[in-house]
Write a protein that binds this DNA or RNA. Structure first.
Lengths: 256, 256
DNA sequence: TGTTTGCATTGATGTGAATCAACCAATCTT
DNA sequence: AAGATTGGTTGATTCACATCAATGCAAACA
């Protein structure tokens, strides 16, 4: 085997491990020394990719592991007694899924994949054991849980007090920010979720979301062609959807 | 000093420590052996009581410790750019306050006391250090953070999809459940928050909250005399506000 | 190539809750 | 005790968004 080939292979191996993962700066490895990243990597498993509609877990199932998006995207939702679906969150690469279930040991919502998606799976018992051992890991795990609390508080505020335009603007800004953090364009991106899913998440009717997109387009704030979005005036969107003053919430800003 | 006196004094001491605290079964000590409860107790401080309007912390301040309600109640809220207050949560005895700030190290909302309230204060660095040492403590801390995520998801669902009546009913059920868990009556209780604060939390206008109370009263579901509430038909309220099927969210059910 | 299917958009209409405006009861002020 | 202030309730009106209904339009399929 040539030197060249072996270096490519080791690169690929790295890619598939926490050490080589481009998301390490957003995810659990933050703050860990290399040796400890290896220990973390040892408890992580990576399955074959999921496809649109696949479930990571279902409402009511026992909780055993958390999931971390490696590529693609996931929605969390729950079904009410009438069978209606209510989206409670979207997850992008580097974001942890299943945290709501630690408390009871039962998943209170379901997680469905929105597009071809790779996920890392971390058995929670192992993660707890390793966190006891590695204070930095415990610290980052607590931070990530806290981030979720922070984001959800922001959503509660948004849903409680803001108009349709404000909600949609805030949603787009959130996505834009998060894509940017992941090295993608902040101005042009692809929506992996349908209008209905956006509407459900924002507590609006599909038609309202659609009309709001159209209105933003008329005002020259963005171009929306089905699922591809091009933001033309991020400042104006921020003006509309910017949640609040200086120090406060940054909706869905799920960075590390 | 008589034997009698000394036993009273030691009882009072116990009351003021985690070991003798009636809330231990809801709070951080869950799962700890007696010796470890002492270690936890050693890092907790208890100040003189707070009074209505006192702040535990303000939006924008640096985060250094979490607060746990010992008696009384607290609201968390944030002010938007126009200076409007938006309540994002109410906290009862045994519930942890400030968790949203672990992530950034800055409080993204403010916490104000609603009535005469005693609180335990736990420096977060100390808590992290002790959690590394005591796996049971780490476990419970993670569970409590997860509970917060769980509850907030429930609120997102409630605010996104439910009518005024459903929101108010869910709110009352949540309070009733939580009071009951704390050894108080599930049917008769006192609201420490004003109509305006309830309205802000539920994303409604004060008038709507007031009218909904009146309507519930007309239907014979409850009696509301200013701040004292007497629930007459909890089943009916559950029917209206019960969030969803079997396994799903129990809004604000902040038990351990 | 025409047909089906599943989103997305647009228009017309209806409604639940916000807003505006009194009013009342309790508490505070002096 | 009279006036002022605050918190809560009730009524009238308005409006933002939901709902209902039709159409457009792309990808999937026969």
């Amino acid at each position: 085997m040539s030197n060249n080939q072996s270096s490519i292979i080791s690169l690929l191996k790295d890619r598939a491990s926490c050490k080589g993962c481009g998301l390490a700066s957003l995810c659990l490895p933050v703050g860990l020394v290399e040796n400890d990243v290896d220990k973390l990597n040892a408890i992580v498993t990576r399955n074959t990719p999921y496809h649109r509609g696949d479930m990571l877990y279902n409402q009511g199932e026992a909780f055993s592991q958390i999931y971390i998006v490696k590529s693609g995207s996931v929605k969390a939702y729950y079904e009410d007694k009438d069978g209606n679906e209510h989206v409670v969150g979207f997850f992008l690469p580097g974001e942890l899924i299943g945290l709501e279930a630690i408390h009871t040991g039962i998943h209170s919502c379901s997680a469905a994949v929105l597009e071809t998606t790779a996920a890392c799976e971390v058995p929670f018992e192992d993660l707890e054991r390793l966190s006891s051992e590695l204070p930095s890991l415990q610290h980052q795990l607590l931070r990530l849980l806290s981030r979720e609390v922070h984001n959800d508080c922001g959503m509660v505020a948004l849903l409680g007090n803001n108009s349709a335009e404000e909600r949609v603007a805030a949603f787009l800004i959130s996505l834009s920010t998060r894509f940017h953090q992941r090295g993608l364009s902040a101005n042009e991106f692809h929506l992996s979720m349908s209008r209905a899913e956006i509407a459900s998440f924002l507590g609006l009717a599909v038609e309202t979301v659609s009309r709001t997109f159209s209105r933003f387009q008329e005002k020259g704030l963005l171009e929306a062609e089905r699922k591809s979005i091009k933001i033309l005036d991020i400042e104006a969107l921020n003006e509309i959807g910017g949640l609040c003053a200086s120090t406060a919430f940054q909706l869905g800003q799920k960075q590390a």
